[in-house]
Design a protein around this nucleic acid. Sequence first.
DNA 1: AAACATTCAATTGCGAACAATTAAATGTGA
DNA 2: TCACATTTAATTGTTCGCAATTGAATGTTT
Lengths: 152, 152
Amino acid sequence: MARKSSAVDPLRLDNQICFAVYSATHAFNRVYKPLLDRLGLTYPQYLVMLVLWEHDDVPVKEIGEKLFLDSGTLTPLLKRLEAAHLVKRTRSSEDERQVLIALTPQGHALKEKARSVPQSILAASDCSVSELVAMKDEIVALRDRLNAVIGE
Amino acid sequence: MARKSSAVDPLRLDNQICFAVYSATHAFNRVYKPLLDRLGLTYPQYLVMLVLWEHDDVPVKEIGEKLFLDSGTLTPLLKRLEAAHLVKRTRSSEDERQVLIALTPQGHALKEKARSVPQSILAASDCSVSELVAMKDEIVALRDRLNAVIGE
DNA sequence: AAACATTCAATTGCGAACAATTAAATGTGA
DNA sequence: TCACATTTAATTGTTCGCAATTGAATGTTT
C-alpha cells in the first residue's frame, strides 16, 4: 500500500487551518507593532480603544463580550490604559459591581492619530478591499460556529 | 453631509479583518483546549509536536522557522516538553551552537493519541473540508504577504 | 593567525490570555 | 426578612510571544 499522501495527512502542519489562522494573527501583530508603537498602544489595547471610540462609558463586561476576553485579561490591561491617561475607571453608582470605562480627553484625541492605521494595514495586505471583506466574513462565520460549539 | 456609514468606517471593530483573525485564533484555542488536555499539551506545544512528528531531530531554529516563533518562546516551551519526557534536547556535535530536538519513545507514541484531534476540529468547524482548504489557502497567502512586508 | 562579524540558543522583562478562586453587590425564593 | 444563587471585577498562577541583550561557537577577511 502507498503511504498516505502528505496532501491529505490530517496531522500535517501545512494542512491545518488553525495554524494558518494562528500564524496570520502573529503576522498581523508584527505589522501593527511599529504603527501602534507611535500611538503608545499594544494590539489588544488598540482593540479596546476601538470599542471605546465607538461607544464610550461601558462596563468591563461589555468590552469583554465584544472582544471575547475576560476580566483576567482586561483588568490589568485597563489599568495600564488608565496609567497612560487614556481611560478612567469608575464604579457604577447604579450597580456597584460594575466598573465603567470612559475615555479621557487624551483617549478621545488619540482617535485622530489612529485614523491612518487601517490604511497602512490594507497596504501591507496587498489585496483588494472586497477580497478582504469576503475573507473577513468567512473567518467571522467560522469563528462564530466554533464559539457555538464551546457553549454546548 | 451624512455621517460616514458604519459599513465603511475603517476604525470600526467589525470591519477589521485582523480582529476576525485574532478572535478566530482564540476560538480555535478554546475548542482545542479540552482535546489537548487529554494529551497533556498546550496548543503551541501541539504545534511543536506536529513539526517533530513530521521530521525528528531538528534544531530549535528550524522549528522556529516553521512556526514563526523565536528562541524566547521556544526555549522555555521545549524545556517543558522535556520535563514531560516527550522530547530530548542535545547540543549538536557538528555545530555546538545548535540544540537538536528529538522525540522520546513517549513523544513518538503520543502521535497515535493525537490522530483523533483533527477530526474533532473539523466537526467543530461545521464546514466542508474543501471550504476549509480554500479558506486556509487564502489565509496563508495573506499571512505570507504580511510577512513579506515585515522583512523590508 | 588575529580581528571582526555572524549565528544560535538562552535569558530577562513586559504584556497578554486564561483557568480558578475570591469578594462584594445584586437578585430571588421561601 | 433571611438564606441562597447569580453577577461582576479583581486576583493568582501558568504559559505564551516578543524585544533586547548576552555568551558561546562558527565564519570571514586580511
